[in-house]
Design a protein around this nucleic acid. Sequence first.
DNA 1: CCTGCATCTTGACCTTGGTCAAGAACACAA
DNA 2: TTGTGTTCTTGACCAAGGTCAAGATGCAGG
Lengths: 198, 198
Amino acid sequence: MQQDPIELVLANIGRHITLTPEESRYFTDLLKPGHYARRAYLLREGEVCADFTFIAAGCMKSYLQDKNGKEHILTFAAPDWWIADIMSFITGRPGNLFIQAINDTQTLALSRRNQETLLREIPKFERCFRILTERAFAASQQRNIDSMSLSAVERLEKFRRQYPYLLPLLTDQEIASYIGVTPAFFSRMLKKHDLKGR
Amino acid sequence: MQQDPIELVLANIGRHITLTPEESRYFTDLLKPGHYARRAYLLREGEVCADFTFIAAGCMKSYLQDKNGKEHILTFAAPDWWIADIMSFITGRPGNLFIQAINDTQTLALSRRNQETLLREIPKFERCFRILTERAFAASQQRNIDSMSLSAVERLEKFRRQYPYLLPLLTDQEIASYIGVTPAFFSRMLKKHDLKGR
DNA sequence: CCTGCATCTTGACCTTGGTCAAGAACACAA
DNA sequence: TTGTGTTCTTGACCAAGGTCAAGATGCAGG
C-alpha cells in the first residue's frame, strides 16, 4: 500500500526541477530515513533543528508551548510535505518548537550539512528549495491573514475545507489548538453552529 | 544624506552572494526605480503583484481589509527590505493585499519577468532569493507564534524593542493594527500599563 | 468483561478586547 | 487666526472566547 519514500521524495523534487539519474542518486544518498511511532518526537524545544525533513507517510505536527504550558500548533505536515523549525534551521541556534508524530510516520531527513553539500554540488537544488520556501512562506503568510481577519468558526470551516484528509487523524483538541481556541470553546462552537458531522 | 538606491540594493544582495561588476550591472539594469509619495499605493487589493520591490528609502506597509472594512497590517518594510504580496507574486493571480507608502519612499522593482530572466542568466541569484525567502518565512512564522502565544501588551513591547526606528514614522493606529487591537483598546492599554513614553 | 486513561462536554463565572459615539488634541492650510 | 480633518482618548456597554472543575463518553489493554 505504502509507496517507497525515495520515489515520493523524487516526485516531490521533480515537480520543480529535472534531475538525471546520477543526480537523483546523489541526492537520495544524502537523505537519512527515519521512522517515528505515534507521539514520538522528531524535535524538542531547546534543541537545534539540524534537518529539513520530508514526510513520506504518516503525519507530524509542529507546536510550541507558551509560558503557561499551553500548546499551540503551528503546522501539520502530511505526506509529501517538508517540516522543520525554520528559525532554528537557518540560524543554527536552539529553537522553540516541538515536532511530534501524530501517527506512525516515515521520514527522510536532509541535514543542513548535507543540504549545503547538495547545493554546492548540484546548484539547481537552490531553485528547488527557493520554490519550496516560497510556498511555505505564502502558507505562513496566509495563516497570519486568517488569524487576523477570520472568526474562530470561519477558521474551522476553512481548515476543514483545506485539509479534509487530515481530519480523521486529528483529535478535536489538536484542531482546536491549530485554529487557536481551547478544547472547551471548540466543543461549544461545534454544538452551537451544528458543525459536528465533519 | 540619502544613499544611492543602486548602491543599497547591491549591498543587500552582496550580503548573500558575490557578483562581478558585469553581473551587478546586468542585475541593476533589470530594476525599475520608483517613487511613492506618502499614502500612495504600490499595490491594491485585486491587482496582480508583478514585482518584488526593494525599499531604498522611506517605508511601506502591506495590509488587508477584512469583510467589515477593517484594516489589518501584515508587514512594514523599512529601507533595505523587500516587499511583495508573495501569494499573488508566485501564483500570478490577483491578491488581497494593499501595499502603501507610509512616507515618501524610493523603490527598486524587480518584475517577475525580470526575475525569471535574472535567475536564468545568473543562477547564483537562486541562492540569494532562497535566502531572502527563508528569512521572510522565518519572520512570518515568528509573527504567527507571537500572535498565538503573547498578549496584546507583550506584542506591543516586543514590537517596540524590535523596530524602534519605525516608531517615529507610525501613528498609534498603525501600531495597533499591526499588533492586532483596535485604536480604542490600544489607547487604554498605553494608559493602563503606563507605556506612553515610547 | 472490567479497568484506566484520554477525550469530549457542560455549567458557572471571568477576562480580554471590541463597539459606538462623543469630545479633546493636534496639525496644517488658507 | 480660523477652519477642517485626522488622530487620540474616554465612557458605557457588549461579545468572543478563556478558566476551572465535574461529569460523560470512548476505547485500548489486561
